Structure formats: C-alpha cells, structure tokens
Amino acid sequence: MVNAILAHDLIWGMPPEQLPADAPAWVIDSIDAGQPVVVRRALCAAGDIAVGVRGRLREQRFATVMRVDGIQRRVKPEALCHVLIERDLPAVRALDQLRPMLDDCGWVWGVSGSAGFELASGIEALHPQSDLDLILRTPQPVCRSQARELVNLLDAALCPVDMQLQTPFGAVALREWAGSTRKVLLKSAIGACLVDDPWNPQEQAA
C-alpha cells in the first residue's frame, strides 16, 4: 500500500501531447508550466493512471489519464506533513496548529487539496477562504468513537478542515463516519457506494 500509486499523490512528468484534443487552454498552460497532476480514483487501461489537472480558479479541474512510465517524480500526502510555507493564511495556521496532535494520533496522516498542492509544488494555490484537506491512512478499522474524537480535534482548528479516511478499499469522509447515519459513502476506483463498514471488501462487491 505504501509504495503503490494512490489517490491524492502528486506526480510530475505528463507531456502536453498526452492531453486529449479537447483539453481547455488553461489545462495545456498548466502542463506546459511543469505543474504536477493529482492522482484520481478511477479505472483506466493498463499502463495508464487517472489524474486531474488543477487550474488557478477553483472551478478549473480537468480529469484525464497519464502513462505510468512517464512519471518523473511522485510526492505522497504524508510526505508533506512537515513541509513549511511562510504564508499567513488560515489553512496554513490550522496545519501548524494541528500538526503536533496529528503526529501523536497513532495513524499516518497527510496533506491533500490546495494545501498539499502548494506544499509539494511551491505554486500558490491557497487563499484566505481555503479549507484544509487532510487524509488519514487507516488500514485497520477506526471505530466511530475514535472518529468523533478526531472531528472534535479538527473542529478546534483555525479554519474548516476536511479529512478522508483512506481504507484499503476506498475513502470515506471522517465526518460522515463519525456521524449517526448507519451507511456511509465509500469512494473507490469503481465508483461510490453506500456501505455499513468501509473496511469490509465484501460490501463493496455486493
């Protein structure tokens, strides 16, 4: 699991000629500028990997695929936990605030979303209204009471924080798992489905 290419990994090396003919100009500009792409959860042909291209605007997101053998560099979200940036923004302050507590939580965690993109690439992606997006590697089940404790921790942060639990079979929102609803939405490469237990592979196959 650690060495596999996973959703939220940032990768470099996609050539512009691999983009589809209908790619918007901003997508071509982003790739020409040497920006990384982010790995998505989606099925694709052997030798390809599903990725997304980010633009400067929030609505500028483009889904495509990249050849695996073209990858020149990869940065995982957990490699960004202790990367520092000197920008006085709520998401940056929230990350500084949460870092020691997450380090002590007993799970591997990482930074994704706009914060992860900026930490990995040095390209400014955060703004004053940005949320902080985090992931938690959870190969073993997290009980709902533990999830609620984590939500309480995140709710004390200096900006809104979203966390995804990365199970071996997909991802589930921490806040959803901490809630009272019995079934939660599990997102995987084959799509999204409602499950009782995100760590049970038989549910996804059902």
Rank of each mutant, 00 (worst) to 15 (best):
residue 177 W to R: 04
residue 99 R to D: 00
residue 99 R to F: 01
residue 88 D to K: 09
residue 74 R to W: 08
residue 132 L to G: 03
residue 24 P to W: 04
residue 7 A to M: 05
residue 189 A to N: 11
residue 104 D to F: 03
residue 148 R to V: 05
residue 57 L to S: 02
residue 55 G to C: 01
residue 95 L to A: 14
residue 171 A to V: 05
residue 36 P to G: 10
residue 63 A to E: 00
residue 155 D to S: 12
residue 85 I to V: 15
residue 45 A to D: 11
residue 158 L to N: 05
residue 50 A to Y: 02
residue 165 L to Y: 11
residue 66 M to F: 05
residue 146 Q to N: 05
residue 203 E to T: 02
residue 183 K to Q: 15
residue 100 P to Y: 07
residue 83 V to F: 03
residue 81 C to L: 04
residue 134 L to H: 02
residue 132 L to P: 05
residue 199 W to A: 08
residue 61 R to P: 13
residue 83 V to I: 12
residue 69 D to L: 11
residue 197 D to I: 00
residue 168 P to E: 10
residue 95 L to Y: 03
residue 111 V to N: 10
residue 72 Q to C: 01
residue 137 R to I: 11
residue 115 A to T: 11
residue 165 L to N: 14
residue 53 V to C: 06
residue 18 Q to H: 10
residue 158 L to P: 00
residue 121 S to T: 03
residue 154 L to T: 08
residue 91 A to S: 15
residue 16 P to I: 10
residue 203 E to P: 03
residue 28 I to Q: 10
residue 82 H to F: 05
residue 200 N to F: 07
residue 113 G to T: 02
residue 47 G to V: 09
residue 50 A to L: 03
residue 91 A to N: 13
residue 143 C to R: 07
residue 169 F to M: 04
residue 26 W to K: 06
residue 76 K to W: 09
residue 96 D to R: 15
residue 174 L to S: 03
residue 160 P to M: 04
residue 91 A to E: 14
residue 75 V to A: 06
residue 99 R to Y: 05
residue 92 V to D: 06
residue 70 G to R: 13
residue 97 Q to G: 02
residue 60 Q to A: 09
residue 76 K to C: 02
residue 49 I to S: 08
residue 164 Q to P: 03
residue 83 V to W: 02
residue 114 S to I: 09
residue 157 A to H: 02
residue 48 D to R: 15
residue 35 Q to M: 07
residue 105 C to D: 03
residue 94 A to N: 06
residue 182 R to W: 07
residue 12 W to A: 12
residue 7 A to P: 14
residue 120 A to T: 02
residue 193 C to Y: 06
residue 26 W to F: 07
residue 81 C to G: 09
residue 92 V to H: 02
residue 104 D to P: 00
residue 111 V to M: 08
residue 129 Q to D: 12
residue 188 S to W: 07
residue 16 P to W: 12
residue 174 L to M: 06
residue 50 A to D: 05
residue 90 P to S: 09
residue 163 M to R: 10
residue 109 W to D: 04
residue 39 V to C: 00
residue 128 P to A: 04
residue 5 I to E: 09
residue 97 Q to E: 06
residue 3 N to F: 04
residue 32 D to G: 00
residue 144 R to H: 05
residue 86 E to D: 14
residue 64 T to R: 08
residue 104 D to C: 06
residue 183 K to A: 14
residue 119 L to F: 11
residue 174 L to R: 07
residue 27 V to E: 01
residue 147 A to F: 03
residue 135 I to E: 14
residue 77 P to S: 03
residue 204 Q to N: 07
residue 185 L to T: 15
residue 119 L to K: 13
residue 91 A to V: 07
residue 176 E to Y: 03
residue 187 K to T: 08
residue 104 D to N: 12
residue 160 P to D: 10
residue 154 L to S: 08
residue 113 G to I: 07
residue 114 S to E: 13
residue 82 H to M: 05
residue 125 A to C: 15
residue 139 P to Y: 12
residue 51 V to S: 01
residue 1 M to C: 06
residue 35 Q to I: 01
residue 55 G to D: 12
residue 109 W to F: 06
residue 182 R to H: 11
residue 69 D to Q: 13
residue 50 A to W: 06
residue 115 A to M: 15
residue 118 E to M: 05
residue 27 V to H: 08
residue 16 P to D: 10
residue 127 H to I: 04
residue 185 L to M: 15
residue 181 T to A: 14
residue 87 R to E: 15
residue 3 N to G: 04
residue 200 N to D: 15
residue 120 A to Q: 06
residue 22 D to Q: 14
